[in-house]
């Protein structure tokens, strides 16, 4: 009997070795270990043995059974691994093929510049304010020391809707609104960016363009001097245009400020040597600024003997063009999708 068992074991192990797929392996299992399997048959035939022989044979059979089971198990593991390997291979893809892209959005360069300016001034305690684009003559001109018939109104031929309403020619209208709305006549620190409109359209002028405007009002002897204006604009220009820029204040004339200054920045393209960008002068005009005209203060409820202030403003398109190297202002308004999509990432710090 022991011989028979040994034979079964030998045959089983031999067959397991030869088996090449899990189905045949199962057949081997049934053949030897199944209910009617050879080893099971041996156990059944144990009735014919002497009782003292039974435990001994029983334990041999069990041992052999365990051994065969272990072999089958190991073989199964191998098959499973092979199977998995096959599956993985089958699932292998060309990772260099294109991804499924959700279209990527982009932020318009002019709005990028607005956000940058707003963030800068908010960090200095300014409030960002807004005003209507459809403005009244009163706020756009009269309250800014530009009475009807003033020659400076010529500089900015306007789009009138009626005799009273027009598209604002400058964000300065928001200055008047802010001063007037501040009923307690407390100090003001505000910045306002938005669309403005003038009746001109050529290569360097768009009938619609963006401006940003800043206004600071405080008691006259408290930090609203020309020196404070200079310091503030130095921060502004260095942040927006470049750390190494030099500033030049040039006396100028604006009806709503007195004294008035235009601010030039040393040409960042040629470093001041002279090039086509700065028209060989080494300087680029970027800002208008000045000390708030006493008439403007008075007309908007502040006593010019007690209060003073400074204001500044600039065009947004030019800042965007400088920042991103855009050669033509019209690109900003053409909205070519290939242009827009170039501004689809975070700005470098």
């Amino acid at each position: 009997m022991q011989e028979q068992i040994a034979k079964i074991k030998e045959n089983a192990l031999e067959e397991i070795k030869k088996v090449e797929d899990s189905k045949s392996l199962n057949e081997v299992r049934v053949k030897y270990l199944g209910k009617k399997g050879e080893l099971t048959q041996v156990l059944r035939g144990m009735g014919a043995l002497a009782p003292e022989e039974r435990p001994k044979i029983g334990s041999i059979v069990n041992e052999v059974r365990n051994e065969i089971e272990k072999e089958i198990e190991e073989k199964e593991k191998k098959f499973a691994e092979k199977e998995l390997q096959k599956k993985l291979e089958k699932e292998t893809i060309d990772i260099t093929l294109p991804s499924t892209k959700i279209i990527r959005g982009s932020k318009h360069p002019v709005n990028r510049v607005i956000e940058e300016i707003e963030d800068l001034f908010v960090s200095m305690g300014y409030d960002v304010v807004a005003g209507p684009e459809l403005e009244t003559d009163e706020f756009c001109f009269e309250r800014l020391n530009l009475p009807k018939g003033h020659p400076a109104r010529d500089m900015q031929d306007s789009f009138y809707i009626t005799n009273e309403y027009l598209l604002r020619t400058q964000t300065s209208s928001v200055q008047a609104r802010t001063m007037l709305a501040n009923e307690e006549k407390t100090p003001i620190r505000m910045i306002c960016a938005g669309k403005t409109y003038r009746r001109e359209d050529d290569a360097t002028h768009s009938h619609q363009f963006g401006q940003v405007e800043g206004l600071v009002i405080d008691k006259k002897d408290r930090n609203v001097s020309l020196a404070d204006l200079k310091g503030t604009l130095e921060v502004f220009v260095k942040k927006l245009i470049g750390k190494n820029c030099e500033l030049r204040f040039r006396p100028s004339y604006f009806p709503f400020t007195e004294p008035s200054y235009e601010v030039d920045v040393s040409c960042f393209k040629c470093g001041g040597k002279g090039c086509n960008l700065c028209k060989q002068t080494g300087w680029i005009e970027v800002l208008g600024s000045g000390m708030v005209h006493p008439n403007v203060l008075k007309m908007n409820g502040y006593d010019p003997e007690e209060y003073g202030g400074f204001a500044f403003g600039t065009g947004l398109e030019r800042l965007a063009m400088f920042k991103y190297g855009i050669p033509d202002m019209r690109y900003l308004y053409a909205n070519d999708i290939r242009f827009l999509k170039q501004f689809d990432r975070k700005d470098e710090e």
């Binding site: 200095m124 600071v216 930090n223 609203v224 020309l226 020196a227 404070d228 200079k230 503030t232």
Partner: peptide
């Protein structure tokens, strides 16, 4: 104007808004 030194205003601290 070049002889006038720029300085940063010293003002009461206040949170800006937007």
């Amino acid at each position: 104007v070049d002889n006038i030194e720029g300085k940063l205003p010293v003002v009461p601290m206040k949170q800006g808004s937007y």
